[in-house]
Design a protein around this nucleic acid. Structure first.
Length: 885
RNA sequence: GGGCGGCUAGCUCAGCUGGUCAGAGCGCCUGGUUUACACCCAGGAGGUCGGGGGUUCGAACCCCUCGCCGCCCACCA
């Protein structure tokens, strides 16, 4: 006998172990099984499972379990990302906390060693947390971006792209993070609104004939100014073009040049040009062949190009000093407070400096072409579709991707430099050496590039590198391209776009057929969850409190697209209750001997209640299947919720009770079998969303001879349409309406709960009569009525109501207050009248009748007739009642 | 500046190609010891679908416009 409720903490680890031991997480070897694959968005090894992972993982697991049950060779390939910057940061912080020597003092080798140690100890946490959710990943195929195989793929790709001219080394301005002292890519830069100042600085003309005023938010960069630009058509400065100003503090004469970049509308119309420290100025400098004077070093302190008094000063100190000097020189022409965007490193939070360095770049523009085309022709579709716009927008305006990072944790760039600084790119040092030998005509000492690749470089290869590429493995042939990528919109640029580019370039095919962009999870108030706000909901804690199934069901039910998820405990509780509800329905079945019956054929059922629920089950299977195929997780959850609670429990189980207590042995046997059969289908349908409770019920409530296996490996239901039954639907529809309306009436009239008034059916049609008579016991039980009788007129003391086109009366006579009944009837009549009137007005409109589709017109005619008939009947009854009173 | 998403019952949200589409859950109110379940059962109150205009026989749904809220990209001498 089942307990009263499911006990997740006790059952979950046991069930998970059973699944794992059964080998169900690995795709079947059956060559006939169509392959289905999902690669996990690899979480950072430094990560803790947060609610976003829980949502993302739940959806992937639903798709995987669904595919598996449908007989596919389903693979959900798990793994983790080495997360260059993030991991290096964590370990460096740990070193500092332990009072250890710093990374730089430690040296590269020892430090990397240390990171590996950290990874061995703490890097697996998130993967184990995924298990708690019930994730059916194939752990035997787990990958890590720094694995030997994946690293080989990285080297191969880098070398191949270099050979194709798609990877190159270039000296240009990059976004420099002074905290990490590394370059970062454009998308790792975050613009933050900051309060600052506009300082207006006067630069005296060299010939002493006046001055020119420029405005800046970064005065310290003036130490690197090489020109002042004005617009060629700006009359104010027409006479000055070609002249020079003497740069204050520095004393350097710099030219006044004409360039369209200067906007006469902004500031004074004259703009200082600092090619080494501003992206726009850099371009101006190139146009005019201006020198590039960098005044900052890698840590954003003033360097040797700055006047002696400034060298070694932090950039913000230098800013103050420059302003003070201008003031002292009488050249400060004004200070205006302003709020403006300042670039910050997304991981370090440091203010980013444009910085002139040599870096490796990927020619993203070229690679983007096929990646755009693949989405245009639908080889890959985004779900929801509107994200394609975001994707296109970025891809069509893509800039070269800076892929080198001045870090130690990551894939070292496979480039070696000769004594003259010439790079030799090769997969191994030996190869590089042999190319170098050819180039120099002799052996020269080579030194490997110190830098590592952007973490996203290896992530970009994830869909094929994890399947064994560049080796032509069986997995690669079988599982690439993958089916669906489930991920957040925040990494469309970082990750999705780059996987598309690399996948298409190296395999010729887009890495996935569908990209499902999942929602963002927020707290109940709609705020983004963050540690600093203290509003994070720990998924593991939620699993502890409500069970993994409840959390999964909630996330699925709330994953509706185009909206963020506002998660609340109350909501999870509600879905936990659904589990309990189902559990108890199973318990009811068990108490009544409703085990699955071998050889039971639902198609042969004769009882109308059984035929009805059979049909409803067929519809539900169809709808849930369709929803899951389309990633409509919220719909699938909603359909299941309503079917389980509002149909199976509220109606079918209640209908079954009087039958099971009756004398008709054949009907009892059929109902027991049907009860079990529907439960069986429910368990299958619900399993992808709520795997634990369904697996447990499968074992405990639905044991059947010769079945033995686990639900996870069972087949998805596929039921024949022939099991739909319109007659049964109509019949039970009438019963449900009669009971629902009758209950409403009882409540309104305050009929004592224990009373069992007789139900009279007045002048029923033949069909109605048959339906009522056949289901008398069922109606009596659910309506808690007494005898059911037929009458040609309303008996005295009975209160009438209309339901589904039939007229009923409850013989509540002495039990109730007649005046309350009069009020009720009057209310009902006016409602029907209003409906009739509205419909009549519509039908009275000749345009409606002539232009609306016939079936809509017909529908309204029927509606009018029904409303009028009901009004007639009720009015007659009211009259009688008045007479009685 | 460009773009995207949202605004439906007190709260959180469904409403797919215009025609029972005005819904669900939670909360609230009333009643309930019914051979599963109080993590329950039955009933009920509650919304001029952000404002305005238009298209249409008909609009929460399509178009225009305005207003908030959120996000992304770009720019800011």
């Amino acid at each position: 006998m089942l307990d009263k409720t499911f006990d997740p903490p006790a059952a979950e680890p046991r069930l998970y172990a059973a699944w794992e031991a059964s080998g169900a997480f690995s795709p079947t070897d059956d060559p006939a099984a169509p392959p289905f694959s999902i690669v996990i968005p690899p979480p950072n090894i430094t990560g803790q499972l947060h609610i976003g992972h829980a949502l993302n993982g739940t959806l992937q697991d639903i798709l995987t379990r669904f595919a598996r049950m449908r007989g596919k060779a389903a693979l959900w390939l798990p793994g983790t990302d080495h997360a260059g910057i993030a991991t290096q940061m964590v370990v460096e912080r740990q070193l500092a906390a332990e009072g250890n020597i710093s990374r730089r003092d430690m040296g590269r080798e020892a430090f990397v060693e240390r990171v590996w140690e950290w990874k061995a100890k703490s890097g697996g946490a998130i993967v184990n947390q995924l298990r708690r959710l019930g994730a059916s990943c194939d752990w035997s195929r787990e990958r890590f971006t720094l694995d030997e195989g994946l690293s080989a793929a990285v080297r191969k790709v880098f070398v191949a792209l270099h050979k194709a001219g798609l990877v190159y080394r270039d000296k240009r301005l990059v976004n420099w993070d002074p905290h990490f002292q590394s370059a970062i890519s454009d998308i790792e830069v975050e613009q933050r609104e900051v309060d600052g100042f506009f300082w207006r600085l006067a630069y005296p003309l060299e010939d002493g004939s006046g001055e020119i005023v420029v405005a800046t938010t970064r005065p310290e960069t003036m130490l690197g100014d090489v020109a002042v630009a004005v617009h060629p058509s700006d009359e104010r400065y027409a006479g000055l073009i070609g002249k020079c100003v003497r740069l204050p503090i520095v004393g350097r004469p710099i030219p006044i040049i004409a360039d369209d970049y200067a906007d006469p509308e902004k500031g004074s119309g004259a703009v200082k040009i600092t090619p080494a420290h501003d992206f726009n100025d850099f371009k101006v400098g190139q146009r005019h062949n201006l020198p590039i004077i960098s005044v900052l070093d890698a840590s954003a302190r003033m360097n040797e190009n700055a006047p002696a008094a400034y060298r070694g000063l932090d950039r913000f100190e230098a800013r103050k000093k420059v302003v003070a000097e201008f003031e002292a020189l009488g050249l400060l022409r004004g200070v205006d407070p302003t709020r403006h965007a300042v670039p910050h490193g997304d991981r370090s939070g440091a203010v980013i400096e444009p910085f002139l360095t040599d870096q490796w770049y990927v020619d993203a523009k070229t690679l983007a072409g096929p990646a755009i085309a693949a989405v245009e022709r639908g080889e890959t579709v985004f779900e929801p579709r509107h994200w394609e716009k975001t994707y296109f927008e970025w891809m069509r305006n893509i800039e070269p991707w800076c892929v080198s990072r001045q870090l130690w944790w990551g894939h070292r760039i496979p480039a070696w430099y000769g004594p003259d600084g010439r790079p030799f790119v090769a997969e191994t040092e030996a190869e590089a050496a042999s190319i170098a030998r050819e180039h120099y005509g002799r052996d020269e000492p080579l030194r490997q590039d110190e830098d590592v690749l952007d973490t996203w470089f290896s992530s970009a290869l994830w869909p094929f590198s994890t399947l064994g590429w560049p080796k032509q493995t069986e997995d690669l042939h079988r599982f690439y391209p993958t089916d669906t990528l489930v991920t957040g919109f925040d990494i469309i640029f970082f990750w999705v776009a780059r996987m598309m580019m690399m996948g298409l370039h190296f395999t010729g095919r887009a890495p996935f057929r569908r990209v499902f962009i999942n929602a963002l999870v927020r707290d109940a108030e709609g705020a983004k969850m963050s540690k600093t706000k203290g509003n994070v909901m720990d998924p593991l804690e939620l699993v502890d409190d409500y069970g993994a199934d409840a959390l999964r069901f909630t996330l699925a039910a709330m994953s509706g697209q185009g909206r963020d998820i506002r998660l609340s405990r109350q909501r999870i509780e509600g879905y936990r209750n659904l589990g309990t509800k189902l559990w108890n329905a199973a318990r009811f079945g068990q108490m009544n001997g409703c085990g699955p019956v071998a050889g039971f054929d639902p198609g042969a059922a004769v009882g109308v209640v059984n035929r009805w629920i059979r049909g409803e089950t067929v519809k539900t299977v169809r709808q849930v299947t369709l929803a899951l195929e389309g990633c409509a997780f919220d719909e699938a959850a909603g359909i299941l919720y309503r079917f389980i609670w509002n149909l199976y429990c509220d109606w079918y189980v209640e209908f079954a009770k009087p039958i099971l207590q009756g004398q008709d042995e054949a009907a009892k046997a059929e109902t027991r079998a049907m009860t079990a059969w529907v439960l069986d289908v429910i368990l299958r349908l619900l399993h992808p969303i709520s795997p634990f409770i369904t697996e447990e019920l499968w074992a405990q409530a639905a044991p059947v001879q010769g079945r033995g296996g686990l639900l996870i490996s069972e087949a998805w239901p596929d039921l024949p349409d022939a099991w739909l039954d319109a007659d049964a639907d109509a019949e039970i529809g009438l019963v449900i309406a009669a009971v629902t309306e009758g209950r409403s009436l009882r409540a309104e009239l305050n009929v004592p709960p224990g009373a069992r008034p007789d139900l009279v059916v007045i002048e029923p049609s033949a069909d109605q009569r048959r339906a009522i008579e056949a289901n008398a016991a069922v109606i009596g039980h659910t309506l808690r009525s007494g005898q059911i009788t037929l009458a040609s007129a309303m008996p005295s003391g009975a209160v009438p109501y209309v339901a589904a086109g039939a007229t009923f009366a409850l013989a509540v006579g002495a039990l109730i207050d007649l005046s309350a009944e009069r009020v009720r009837l009057a209310k009902e009549i006016s409602a029907r009248s209003a409906d009739a009137e509205k419909t009549a007005r519509k039908l009275g409109n000749p345009d409606f009748v002539s232009r609306a589709p016939v079936e809509v017109v017909e529908e309204n005619r029927e509606r009018l007739a029904e409303a009028e008939a009901a009004r007639e009947r009720l009015s007659a009854m009211l009259e009688r009642l008045e007479a009685l009173a």
